[in-house]
């Protein structure tokens, strides 16, 4: 028993959770200003590809990260223009962006990277190193969760708190609240609705593509076709499970990352004497989100102007 719930499990959990937290908070930035964003998956995937390409060409993970963010911004811009200028349906645009990212990243991977390397995945890129915590490493919880992690993980852990302060304690946060809940009234009050929506969607591109960059530059070191593997949708589940609140979304993302880590650790071993099927553990985030949608865990209240 004790050999399952050890420090290593929690370390793996926070690593698994990092891209989920980043993408969920990306989704939050967009949905809080009323723009539905089911394109997180595509932004993660495109971010991962661009990160690998940038890092392979220059040997620097920082260039990889910059490329990822640019790719995420480009996809987010498509979503913003489609929904804000052309008044396209948010869901349809999101579906198209996921498809575009899947097609384009695979196409470009086969065109640019495969001819030089083997088809399975790109060769290993220079990754971000781990960060020492100095004195903080002695603290009880931190020494387990944040020891030997990359700075992207530390960033993902800090981000929800930063966003919470920005959303509840600043003028910008109040305006975001106004736009997300009643954009018409917000406009009448002189809030630049369209600019806030653009910014929200673009920030979602930044954070979601950082999740993709993390997969390549801090987790696996290489790009593989369709490597986002549904993380964008788990992040969406975390956002809803966490009720569009930065701490709630990040907490749910950590919980879902923990299930993944537990599943990897158990590998078919019994837990508390019960044999848990791997598929059941993998299914858990989605099941829990459905339970939350049923209202069994209290009332759900999405931003009231979502999708308009």
């Amino acid at each position: 028993m004790g050999d399952i719930f050890d420090a290593q499990l929690f370390g793996t959990a926070i690593r698994q959770a990092t891209p989920l937290i980043l993408a969920a908070l990306g989704g939050l930035m967009s949905e809080r200003v009323g723009v539905v964003n089911i394109g997180l998956e595509g932004k993660i995937l495109m971010g991962a590809f661009a990160a690998a390409l940038g890092a392979l060409l220059t040997g620097s993970p920082w260039v990889g990260l910059a490329c990822a963010i640019l790719a995420g911004l480009a996809l987010a811009l498509i979503h913003a223009v489609a929904t804000q200028e052309l008044h396209a349906d948010h869901i349809v645009s999101g579906v198209a962006i996921n498809l575009l990212a899947l097609g384009l990243s695979t196409y470009l991977f086969r065109q640019i990277i495969v001819p030089r390397e083997e088809a399975g995945g790109s060769s290993v890129v220079t990754m971000f190193g781990t960060v020492g915590l100095g004195g903080l490493a002695e603290w009880p919880v931190l020494n387990v969760l944040l020891k030997d992690q990359s700075w992207l993980t530390l960033f993902a852990v800090a981000l929800p708190f930063v966003l919470l302060v920005l959303l509840t304690r600043t003028r910008w946060g109040l305006r975001v609240y106004a736009v997300g809940n009643d954009s018409l009234k917000a406009r009448t009050m002189g809030v630049p609705v369209k600019r806030l929506r653009y910014l929200g969607v673009l920030w979602s591109g930044v954070f979601a593509s950082m999740a993709g960059a993390f997969l390549v530059l801090a987790a696996t070191g290489q790009f593989r076709e369709n490597m986002s593997a549904g993380r964008g949708f788990i992040a969406l589940a975390a956002l809803i499970f966490g009720r569009w609140h930065p701490l709630g979304a990040a907490g749910a993302a950590f919980g879902f990352g923990f299930f993944e880590a537990l599943q990897m650790r158990l590998q078919g071993q019994p837990l508390f004497g019960v044999q848990l099927p791997t598929d059941l553990l993998l299914m858990l985030p989605y099941l829990l989100t459905v339970v939350a949608l049923m209202g069994l865990l209290g009332k759900m209240r999405p931003p009231s102007d979502l999708g308009n």
Binding site: I78, A82, L86, A88, D89, V92, S93, V95, A96, I97, L99, L100, L102, G103, L104, T106, Y107, R110, Q111
Partner: peptide
């Protein structure tokens, strides 16, 4: 790459949307 079909499909959906 056969993903050409996927990209074209995405462009088409965006256009229809």
């Amino acid at each position: 790459p056969k993903e050409i079909a996927v990209v074209v499909q995405a462009v088409l959906i965006l256009y229809v949307a």
